[in-house]
Simulated scan of single mutants.
Amino acid sequence: MYKTIAFNGKFFGAAPTGVHRVAEQLIAATDALIAEQRGNDADYALLIRNSVRVPSYRKILCVRENPRVRRMHRIAWEQLYLPLARREDFILNLCNLGPLYHRDSATLIHDAQVYSAPESYSRSFRLWYKFLFFFIGRRHKLIVTVSEFSKRELVHYGVATADKIVVVHNGCDHVLQIRPDEGQLATLKLARGRYVLALANTQKHKNIAILLRAFAAPELKDVALVLFGGASRADFENGGHVVPPNVRFAGRVTDSELVGLMANAGALAFPSLTEGFGLPPLEAMALGCPVVAAPFGALPEVCGDAALYADPFDPRAWSLKIRTVLDDPAVRQSLIAAGHRQAGIFTWKRAARNLFEAVNAVNARTQADPK
């Protein structure tokens, strides 16, 4: 008999991040997938730490923690309570980390950026993640990652061997189910198709500095750069960056507001020096927004021929590519059509199927050979 597959739901109730959103989409898509299966040999449960509201699932049973441990710190809950409470189960961790002392586990590690881009993280964060990765990669039965690039990086940095890692690409079709809110266009005084969207992120590997330099040039003086996310103008300026006057900060936006911004943007600019996957470019493509990206990390793997690529160290290259996208109708329409095709490859149903098959294969082997 197969072990119950228990999803580690520690992330529910935490501040939303890209990693958490991926986990939510994978759980929902897996639930839909197993509802379609006949003769499925495993049971599924979602373990959560507290009384936060979670979606309703058809086949995945939501298990709330014992009230006596409700105040337990999330790290202690994951490392101590979870493996003891579910010691007979196969635990599936979708947010990079998981309990070290539970060998019958699979863990999704999105990237190796604590190794490849250490300057983007605090010393304590790097040490904690490297410590956990070292043991997770050796003890857990399966490591899942989101791109072939990330797999190579995890092997390169010694997190796990290649034969232990399975690639499950993210999906992006969730954006097609979100009703757009175009209120930010009026708030920020944006002209449809004449602004460029990018992340408001000060981490060095996100490389937003190159966009600030590009938008300070005369070629883009009539184009707004809209940065969405947690970093503010002050954050960039305190980091030593000069923020030109045509940069506008949207702040943290809702999913609906982000879809509204993407659907009406002239382009999404994504100049990262490394990415384990790079979901925003695919989301933009799905919504008909052309993408200009850096040819680094997993971005060529994910974007394929559906994006224009610019040298991430040359601000003039960015200004020229962006002007091309905004001003050349033939290039723009070609990118939009190619983007729709590329985004169509990456669905959450496909991701869930690949994850489902990989985890169940390991679960079956665990039953045959419990060592």
Rank of each mutant, 00 (worst) to 15 (best):
K3S: 11
T4S: 12
A6P: 00
K10G: 00
K10S: 09
K10N: 07
G13N: 05
A23V: 07
Q25I: 09
I27K: 02
I27M: 07
I27S: 04
A28Y: 11
T30C: 09
I34C: 01
A35R: 08
R38I: 13
D41H: 13
L46D: 03
L47R: 03
L47E: 01
N50R: 14
V54L: 09
P55C: 11
R58D: 11
C62M: 10
N66Y: 08
P67R: 11
P67Q: 06
R68K: 14
R71A: 12
R71T: 10
M72E: 03
W77L: 11
W77A: 04
L82S: 03
R86V: 14
L97S: 09
Y101R: 14
H102R: 10
D104G: 07
A106G: 01
D111F: 00
Q113T: 15
S116M: 12
E119N: 10
Y121G: 01
F133N: 06
F135H: 12
R139A: 10
I143Q: 04
V144M: 01
V146R: 01
E153S: 05
L154A: 04
V159I: 13
D163I: 10
K164G: 02
V168F: 02
N170W: 08
D173M: 09
Q177A: 15
K189S: 15
L190P: 02
L197T: 01
T202E: 00
L211C: 02
A214T: 07
A216M: 01
A216V: 08
V223H: 01
V226I: 06
A231E: 05
F236K: 03
N238L: 15
G239L: 10
V242I: 15
V243H: 02
P244I: 12
P244R: 07
P245V: 13
A250E: 02
G251V: 08
R252E: 03
E257R: 11
L261Y: 04
G266C: 13
A267V: 06
P271G: 10
T274L: 13
P281E: 09
L282Y: 04
M285K: 02
V292M: 09
V292Y: 00
A298S: 08
P300R: 09
V302M: 05
V302N: 04
G304Y: 04
A310P: 08
F313L: 15
F313A: 14
W318R: 02
R323T: 14
R332C: 01
S334A: 12
H340G: 07
H340A: 07
Q342F: 12
Q342C: 08
A343Y: 12
K349I: 00
K349W: 11
K349F: 12
A352F: 02
E357F: 02
E357G: 01
V359H: 02
V359G: 00
V362G: 05
T366F: 08
Q367P: 00
P370C: 12
